[in-house]
């Protein structure tokens, strides 16, 4: 307690009082020249050291920067590799489709027509046509904040509602920010990011739907998705823009992962043939054949 009360009661360095008393005792003591020089040198040194310390404290430590750069480099490399693999998959799929069509055109034109229709519906091939674009964007950040809080951001639920509303309104194909939605595409959130088919996305989100734009717009507004959009706009200040487009281009996923297949012919064959039903062809490691 003595220590603390000492600190509280007399915070000024007692040396100042002593020096003042000394000065009062000998008012005309000469100030030495060496002393002036010494004080100057020492204060310059101290100012330099403190400035250097402050500067050093203000920059992030070099090791952290290095680690960050390393991780960034790794992420870039791996992303490039993934993109490369994706391109290769797309090219091979296109080749496969072309070959398939070539063969089927001669043998079974009806099956080919059905195949092409199914490929469009399942999101495998790219489609173009008129449709509707719903743009959702985060609310502007509140004063003094770098980014809006979670309530004022577009969340996975909002996108799910819009997409479901578009399907219900009769959309033939839907894509979010250029990622085509298929029957197995998930819209989830991980932390503050929205993942569409495991691809991280950020505001603004363009939800494109192909179909009759007038019908889509009316049905979307009439359904529960329309109410949801109105709530987002009015209560949470989230940007909502719905516009009809004459020429939308939605990419295809380019690949089919076959999870289940069965042979249509009632032959009691013991060996399953995975690519028989519907003619959906694809390469997959999780093929599962079954005879009826």
């Amino acid at each position: 307690m003595t220590l603390l009360s000492e600190v509280f009661r007399r915070p000024l360095d007692p040396g100042y009082h002593e020096a003042a008393r000394r000065k009062a005792a000998h008012p005309d003591a000469p100030v030495g020249r060496t002393r002036t020089v010494g004080v100057l040198v020492l204060t310059v040194l101290l100012g330099l050291v403190v400035t250097a310390a402050t500067l050093a404290l203000r920059q992030p430590s070099p090791s952290a920067v290095e680690a960050r750069a390393l991780l960034l480099g790794q992420i870039k490399d791996e992303t490039a590799r993934a993109d490369e693999a994706q391109r290769s998959i797309s090219a091979t799929s296109a080749q496969l489709t072309a070959l398939q069509e070539q063969v089927l055109a001669g043998e079974d034109p009806k099956l080919l027509a059905r195949l092409q229709q199914d490929a469009g519906a399942s999101g495998v091939v790219a489609v173009t046509g008129p449709g509707l674009r719903v743009e959702l964007s985060d609310a502007p950040a509140a004063d003094g904040q770098d980014e809006p809080d979670l309530d004022h951001r577009v969340q996975d639920v909002d996108l799910q509602v819009v997409v479901n509303g578009l399907w219900a309104a009769g959309a033939e194909a839907v894509a979010i920010n250029g990622t085509r939605l298929t029957t197995t595409t998930a819209i989830r959130s991980a932390g503050s990011a929205v993942l569409v088919d495991l691809v991280a996305m950020s505001s603004p989100y363009d939800v494109d739907a192909i179909g009759d734009s007038a019908t889509l717009q009316t049905q979307l507004a009439l359904g529960s998705a329309g109410q949801h959009l109105a709530t987002l706009r009015d209560t949470y200040d989230i940007g909502v823009a719905v516009s009809a487009r004459t020429d939308l281009r939605l990419p295809g996923t380019g690949q089919v992962t076959l999870r289940y297949a069965s042979t249509p012919a009632p032959t009691s064959s013991a060996t399953p043939s995975p690519s028989a039903d519907g003619g959906v062809a694809g390469s997959s490691s999780t093929q599962e054949g079954r005879t009826p």
């Binding site: 004080v39 204060t43 310059v44 101290l46 100012g47 330099l48 050291v49 403190v50 400035t51 500067l55």
Partner: peptide
């Protein structure tokens, strides 16, 4: 003066 000089130098 010395402190200011030191800060500028730094």
């Amino acid at each position: 003066l010395g402190l200011a000089l030191g800060v500028v130098l730094g």
